[in-house]
Computed example of a mutant assay.
Amino acid sequence: MDELAATGAQAATYAGAVQAAAQWLLAQITGGPNHELWQMDAAEHIEKNFDDGLTYENDNGNTAISPKVLTTFRAISVGTVVWERGTKSWRLRTPHDPDGKRQAD
């Protein structure tokens, strides 16, 4: 396999891992008993169970989810999931959440 083909295969594998991690996030919220997911728990699970590069250490020294995973997650959860800033968690959207808002206070 030439270098260009290897790079393309690696990119496809990484893109698949990003999609899988984003799908896992959504499944935990939509299928979980409380319909919520704490950011810290999600980051730790992704770090342990998915490919390298899907998490990183942030400025506070905590494990954080890669922006690519979060962007993909936002795209597949539009209208379904809300970010709770105060608790640093995601939850299912309720009728009380303002339309078009992805974040609750």
Results as ranks from 00 to 15, higher is better:
residue 87 T to Q: 14
residue 38 W to R: 09
residue 88 K to W: 06
residue 41 D to S: 15
residue 46 I to F: 02
residue 54 L to G: 02
residue 38 W to F: 07
residue 30 T to N: 08
residue 10 Q to I: 09
residue 82 V to W: 00
residue 78 V to D: 11
residue 76 I to H: 10
residue 77 S to Y: 02
residue 36 E to H: 08
residue 65 I to R: 00
residue 80 T to Y: 00
residue 46 I to W: 06
residue 90 W to E: 08
residue 104 A to E: 08
residue 57 E to S: 04
residue 60 N to P: 04
residue 59 D to I: 03
residue 66 S to F: 02
residue 10 Q to C: 11
residue 104 A to D: 07
residue 75 A to L: 12
residue 34 N to D: 12
residue 13 T to R: 11
residue 49 N to H: 13
residue 69 V to K: 12
residue 17 A to H: 10
residue 76 I to E: 14
residue 1 M to D: 05
residue 43 A to K: 00
residue 84 E to D: 11
residue 99 D to R: 09
residue 100 G to M: 07
residue 44 E to C: 03
residue 66 S to N: 12
residue 96 H to C: 00
residue 41 D to Q: 06
residue 84 E to V: 06
residue 13 T to L: 12
residue 7 T to K: 14
residue 4 L to M: 11
residue 59 D to H: 09
residue 39 Q to P: 03
residue 49 N to Y: 05
residue 1 M to I: 11
residue 70 L to D: 03
residue 72 T to G: 08
residue 58 N to E: 11
residue 66 S to V: 05
residue 79 G to V: 14
residue 41 D to T: 09
residue 57 E to I: 12
residue 90 W to M: 01
residue 101 K to M: 12
residue 86 G to L: 09
residue 45 H to W: 06
residue 40 M to I: 01
residue 27 A to V: 05
residue 4 L to Q: 14
residue 95 P to K: 08
residue 70 L to M: 13
residue 97 D to P: 04
residue 48 K to D: 15
residue 39 Q to G: 03
residue 22 A to I: 00
residue 59 D to F: 03
residue 38 W to N: 15
residue 45 H to F: 11
residue 45 H to N: 07
residue 48 K to H: 10
residue 38 W to Y: 07
residue 3 E to S: 13
residue 32 G to N: 09
residue 40 M to E: 10
residue 50 F to D: 04
residue 66 S to Y: 01
residue 66 S to D: 14
residue 77 S to A: 12
residue 51 D to E: 14
residue 84 E to N: 12
residue 18 V to N: 07
residue 50 F to R: 14
residue 91 R to G: 01
residue 39 Q to R: 10
residue 81 V to M: 13
residue 89 S to A: 14
residue 102 R to W: 06
residue 11 A to C: 07
residue 87 T to Y: 03
residue 29 I to N: 00
residue 96 H to E: 02
residue 95 P to T: 05
residue 70 L to E: 03
residue 95 P to H: 08
residue 98 P to F: 04
residue 40 M to N: 09
residue 28 Q to L: 01
residue 89 S to I: 02
residue 89 S to K: 15
residue 35 H to P: 06
residue 55 T to K: 02
residue 31 G to H: 05
residue 56 Y to G: 05
residue 60 N to D: 10
residue 3 E to R: 10
residue 12 A to H: 08
residue 68 K to H: 14
residue 39 Q to I: 04
residue 24 W to D: 08
residue 36 E to A: 07
